[in-house]
Structure formats: C-alpha cells, structure tokens
Write a protein that binds this DNA or RNA. Structure first.
Lengths: 338, 338
DNA sequence: TCTTCAAGGGTTAACGATTAATCAAATGCA
DNA sequence: TGCATTTGATTAATCGTTAACCCTTGAAGA
C-alpha cells in the first residue's frame, strides 16, 4: 500500500522513534550516527519508498542543483545537440536542466532569464540574441551572483564566460581547403547575422589573402539562413562572368540548396564547382553528393559550457571569465573531392 | 546598488512597515488590500527589483509549475521538435520544463523518473522505452498522484494518457499512395522497434490487401534506424527477382539512404522505383530528388501532450485516461511523382 | 574521584513564502 | 448612541529539510 501523500522524513522518524534530524543525517551520510540506527533508517526509508523533497532541501541549502538553459529555439539541430550535451554533462553531478527557448524574441529572452532566476537556478547557459539592452540584464544576473556562460553568440561589452565556435577559423579553413583542392575563384554565400557571419566572412577573406587571391565583393552574396534563400543566392552567383569554381557556404542547409542550384544549371559537382558547408549536420553523408563541411564541435560546445558553469557554481569565489573557442575540424566528402 | 542577497518579501515589508503577508497578498492580487498600500508595495517591489522565490512558494503551495519531459534522446529532430512544442505550449501557463534524456537506457529512464518526482514536478511527459518493469514504475508515479502523459511509444498494460502518431494509418497511407502512383510491387524497409515499426508494417499489409495485392515477406527488410543499415537494406531489395517498383521506408533517413542505393544501382528515381518516407524532416525539400513523406504531426504531438497534461495537473479529480492518435498527412514530392 | 572527551543523539531555529485565524478600526443601520 | 458588519492588516502555523548547538552517557586518563 503506497500512501497518497509523499513520504517525508517525519514519517520515517515517527515509525522509528528517532528525530527527523537523525534521519536527515543518515540520508546525507553526515554527522555521527551509530551503525545500528543508520541501518534501521536506511532500510525503513527503502521500505516506505522515501524520495527526498528537493524543494524543501533547496530552500534551506540555497542550492537547487538545477541549471537553466536558454536557447533561441531548440528544434534547430545545432541547439538540440547542445542541449543534449549539456544535459548529459551535468547529470553525473546531480544537476537537472530547465530548458527555455525564446524563439528569437529578445523581450521573451529577458523575461525568461528573470523567470529562471526566480526559480533559483544555480547557473545559466545562454545563447543570447545580442540586443544592446541585454548587457543590463546580464549585470542583474551577475549582481545576484548567479554564474552564467554564454554560448555560440558572444556579447560585446560584457566580461563573461563564453564558449563557441571559432568562426574566423571556420571561414579560413573552409576557404583554404577549396584553394588546396585547386579552386581559384571562390565565392561565399554568407549568413545574415552580424557577429558570426561577419567572422566567417573575415576568415574567408583572410584565406584568400594568404593564398594571394583577390577578394571581389561580387562573389559574396547574402544567403539568409533558410534553404530557399540559399538557392536564390547560388543562382545569383551562377550569373557572374568568370564562374566561381568553389563556394564556401555559411552553413549546411544553404550548401545543400546551393548544390541543387548548381546541378539544375547543368554543372558537374564537384568538377565544375566544389562546395563546402559548415556545421557538419548528420545527414550530410546521405546526400546524393555527400557534402564536405567544417565541423564546429557542437557537442564540445555544450560539454565545455556545462563544465565551465559547474566549476563556477561550486566554487564560491568568483573565478574570472574564461573564453573558449572550439577549433573547427574539416570533414571532407565528395563535394570537394577532385 | 543591487544587494548581494536576493530581495525577499521580508525586505519589502520591513521598509514599508507592513507585514510580510500584506506584501504577499499584494503580489498575488489576493485578499483585501487598500489601494494606497497596494501601490506602495508594488512600487517598492519594483524599485528593489524583487523576484519571487519559487522554491519557497512551491514548498507551501505544493505546486512547482514545472513539468518533466523525459525523452530517449533529444538530438533526434523528432524529439527536438516535440520538446520545442511542449515548452512553447506550457510557457503561457507559467510552467517551465525540466528535460532529461535517458539515451535509450531503461535503467537510466527509471532513475530519471524518480529524480524528477523528487524535484516535485507537477506532471510528466515521457517517451518511454517499453521495458516490462516500467509498468511498476508508472504505477509508482500514479500512486503519488502525479499526472503523466506517454508520447510516441505506448506501453501495453497501462491505462494511461497517450499521444502519438497513428502508425497504422501512416503505413496504410504511404503504401496506398504508392499504389495510386501505379506501383504494383511494393517493398517495405521496416524499423527495428517492436511497437511502432510493427504497426507501420501492419498498415502496409492492410493497404496491399485493400488493393488486392499479394503480401510477400521477402519484400520486407529490416533497415535498422541508422542511415548505413538503410542503405544495406535497399541493396538487398535490389537483388530480388521482380524488382520492386515502390518502397515504403520506415523513416526519412532510411529513405534517403535507400534513394542513394537506388541511384548507385543505375536506376531512375522515381521512374523505376518510387520512394516514400515517414516523418517529413525539414530537409526533405533540399534533396536532389525531394522525398515524398508522411508527416506524423510531430509538433501536434507535443502540443496536445502538453495540453492534456496541464488539464490533469489543474483538475484535482482524476480525469480518465485519454488516447490521442494524430492522423498523418501525406506530403508529395518528386520521389513519387510519375 | 574528578575531569575530559568522544560518540550518538536530540533541540531549536531558520529558509521564504502561503493559509487560516484573528483583530482593530471604520462604517452601516436602526 | 449602540451593535453588527465590513475593511484592512496582523499574528500564528505550516511546508519538509538542514545548520548550529546542546545534552547525555560511558570510558579513558590523571
């Protein structure tokens, strides 16, 4: 017969005619308790199927063993992967993850941060939309002494922990790879974001410069970040006079639709045009022409962010902000093999 | 100057020389409070940047406004989409979501359920691995009067709420569509799971029967659920004497790798063999031959599960279990257009 | 014999809110 | 004026655990 109300320490204590504190001590393995009572308590707790009430414990210890994970959206494979990595990294330490997404809405982001703080999370991991007023918001978080780690999108003007991809390196690596495969006229389908896309573009320009190739702005086209706009972007590139022989695409979805545009134009892939994406999504292998892509170490971002955060959570003295850039890794497939 | 310790109702009360209860009442908009004090409290709360301590409130109200979402893994786009739908559905009601994944490990699943209960979640949404001992586990949950909703994978022998795809209908619809497109020898790349895959197979057989076509077990091959095994499965089918002219694939990743195998065999798609997948993942449009797929209404599963759960959470009388099957929808693309 | 100390517990008071019961002052009505 | 009623706020109890201290008892050492 299981009771309707959850079993409390009080119930165990009453049955065993000991004090609640004794039960608490046994369950925490703390304080001096004889082996006899320890065993009695333990066995009776198991018998009653006792489950700690974490709400009550948290109230007095001021630790919820909960961290907040705030993402722009988590249907996106990139963020889903991060969520997974974070959850798996903190679980062994007894932490749980409260997720929240703000659907790219900065106001919602701010309000969710407050909600998570109200729920007394021990720490926060945030992939923030970079609105200027957010600096204030983060200062509020810091004032409450709640450690937080930014991921993916850094925020300028904020001395905070950050873990993200090395976007310059990604651009450099992708472009250098095309050059190494013999491309001499390399286009770039860039993304819309200010920060990340700009850095990848910089990497692209850097690689061109290093190879002594000329940068021509006509070969850089904004591709949005949806499949449709990537397709359109590629079609624009196909109108250019010296046809590009290589394209570095801001991300994999764009690269995939770019490849479609290339094929439809009657061109051979990768012979006529080689394509590199970024993100290394898991279905790249299954494409008709498997896509070479720069892996941005998504899983590592989640794992490192979690570890960084837990370190701050358990240390009571404020460690100084740490910035980690994950070095990218090129995964070569058919789309550049020539 | 923001204080280091979080502001409590006590702080507000002291400053204003009123009782904590008065503050509490104002903040909850409950009880009789004069307009004058109400305004004083409200403005001072805002000035001190007061944030409700939900842990303390939860302890006394026995409501955490938190639900647990337990998934096999959430990097998978299907589950990621569900997580998103759930979180977005419960947010307007003031709920947050604690996610946990058990990485397809039944033991971990059971222990996570207990952890979530210990954290006093108000309800649970679970896509369970169907181990037999889990029936006991769910009885424990029910004994604690915590409402829960199963999704995606029903558990036999359990009178519980369930929301999932109508797998029989999926199989029937996909197969019927191939028949309507003129296929007469239809193969099936089936999945490994007992429940879901078996139902889709049943639907497949049902559609054949309805059309007066013969069922031949040689044309049903297990495809695992990874891309690699799907590829192998299709190659087996290509060895059969009357070559199949249509394939219903258990899910989209399998379908994609099957298409690759077909192309590599020098066959035309969809002229020689038409392919239908299931799941309707978002990149289907970007493939070289866009994939016809049966949409299983993933988003709806999450939304309905959330609504169902919240209804049980707020009603104190035990509503009786409800089972919802989402009717599938066929999304036709090139892979069957002939 | 007296002190000291450790072992094995128990007591009391938080933690930050809510709920129920209570109370004083102001108001209504005859 | 006098009594009942409403209004507005207070006090006490509680939620389930933990932190900090205090109290026995028995044995060892002086």
């Amino acid at each position: 017969m299981l009771p309707l109300m959850p079993v409390t320490m009080m119930d165990i204590a009453k049955d065993l005619k000991v004090s609640v504190v004794t039960v608490s001590k046994v369950l925490r393995n703390q304080g001096r308790i004889s082996d006899a009572t320890r065993k009695r308590v333990l066995s009776h707790a198991k018998k009653l199927n006792y489950q700690m009430n974490w709400v009550a414990r948290s109230l007095v210890t001021r630790r919820t063993y909960t961290i907040g994970l705030l993402l722009p959206e988590f249907a996106h494979p990139f963020f889903a992967e991060i969520a997974r990595a974070v959850a798996n990294s903190v679980r062994p330490h007894g932490y749980h993850v409260v997720i929240a997404s703000f659907e790219e809405d900065p106001d919602l982001e701010a309000s969710e941060v407050d909600s998570l703080l109200a729920r007394q999370v021990d720490g926060l991991i945030i992939a923030s939309a970079q609105a200027s007023r957010h600096v204030e918001m983060f200062k509020r978080v810091a004032a409450r002494k709640i450690p937080y780690v930014l991921i993916d999108r850094p925020i300028s003007g904020l001395r905070a922990c950050f873990v993200g991809a090395d976007n310059r390196a990604i651009g450099r690596m992708a472009t250098a790879h095309l050059i190494a495969r013999g491309c001499r006229c390399i286009a770039h389908l860039r993304g819309p974001q200010v920060g990340i896309a700009a850095e990848r573009l910089e990497g692209y320009r850097g690689a061109l410069r290093n190879a002594g190739l000329r940068y021509d702005s006509r070969y850089v086209v904004d591709a949005g970040h949806t499949d449709a706009t990537g397709y359109e972007g590629m079609r624009k590139l196909l109108h250019l006079k010296p046809l590009p022989d290589g394209v570095f695409c801001y991300n994999d979805p764009v690269a995939i639709s770019a490849m479609r545009a290339i094929r439809e134009a009657g061109l051979q892939l990768p012979r006529d045009i080689a394509v590199v994406g970024a993100g290394n999504v898991h279905y790249n292998d299954a494409l008709s022409v498997p896509l070479t892509s720069v892996d941005q170490g998504t899983c590592k971002i989640g794992t490192l962010a979690a570890e960084l955060l837990l370190a701050r959570v358990s240390s009571d003295r404020g460690l100084r902000p740490k910035r980690i850039l994950i070095p990218p890794k090129l995964v070569e497939r058919e789309s550049t093999r020539r």
